[in-house]
Design a protein around this nucleic acid. Sequence first.
DNA 1: TCACATAGATATGAAGTATAACTATTATTA
DNA 2: TAATAATAGTTATACTTCATATCTATGTGA
Lengths: 159, 159
Amino acid sequence: MGDAARKAREVGVVGDATLRGFLGYHIKRAMAVLQADLNKVLKPFGLRMVTYSALVTIVDNPGLRQAQLADALAIERPNLVVILDELEGAGLITRDKVPSDRRAYALNPTLKGRRLAEQATAANRADEARLLQGLAPADRNRVIEVMNQIEHGPGGAQS
Amino acid sequence: MGDAARKAREVGVVGDATLRGFLGYHIKRAMAVLQADLNKVLKPFGLRMVTYSALVTIVDNPGLRQAQLADALAIERPNLVVILDELEGAGLITRDKVPSDRRAYALNPTLKGRRLAEQATAANRADEARLLQGLAPADRNRVIEVMNQIEHGPGGAQS
DNA sequence: TCACATAGATATGAAGTATAACTATTATTA
DNA sequence: TAATAATAGTTATACTTCATATCTATGTGA
């Protein structure tokens, strides 16, 4: 480390050259911005990131069971309970007894839930478009491909 | 939603089409994999993600103050204290009194700390290379550009 | 000198996340 | 069929992460 770097630090600049060498570091920093931003957009709807994800997944998959939802969202079952309590308490979903298995509950959105999900999704789309303005669709798709490779392994194998 | 989707759910498949429409959702899922993977790689070194980031930043910027490090890592000052306690207790860094300001501590890596940082960085690089195998350097750079746009806003302005 | 700002530390609380164990049902099998 | 095991959802609990307020010692500026 040279004098320039030492001097820069004295006026408040700290280098992160080594960390910048990792793709994961860039992704982590971007993710922090995305998460803060998303929660700000969702706040007026009374939703957080997890409650939004849960609601949208229930709207997309009406009738699914809690264990299935927990799997899809990578949430532990006990933690999902309070999230669903919140959505049910807000009148956005119902827990309906399923006749064929009296242990289970089928999760269904209410009309209010479907409408709120639609509005929140529109708001999120608008916000993401703002964050990504000027980004070519091809580049966006490329990024998605890379994220999927990271998630599922090279070649896109589903693990 | 059609019969096919309803049938698929019965055998355990839950769709996330709406969420997949968000770049942030893909990034979040990739980040979860990266974080789990990174922590696994760091475990043999006795490090976690935050302690590794802190150690590397101290190695790259010897003599920096705690407040500077907290800023660089976007960690609150009180939370950084325990992280540094951990690194200092492991003999990886020292908190040295700075003569010009007796309130402050200059953070410096020990030889052991520098060596551990070097080894951990090498391990992380190897692991990230494994996760990203087959990814063209141009694509990797494109992803980094997009992450920086998300973090700093369009045009790469530093906010 | 006196008021105020800053560096680091301590205490504390909120939120997210993970595990064990309970109730009620369903499935298995001896 | 009776006994056993497995499953869905829940409760209780603890651990980690993250944020805020406050304290001390020290430094800065009117």
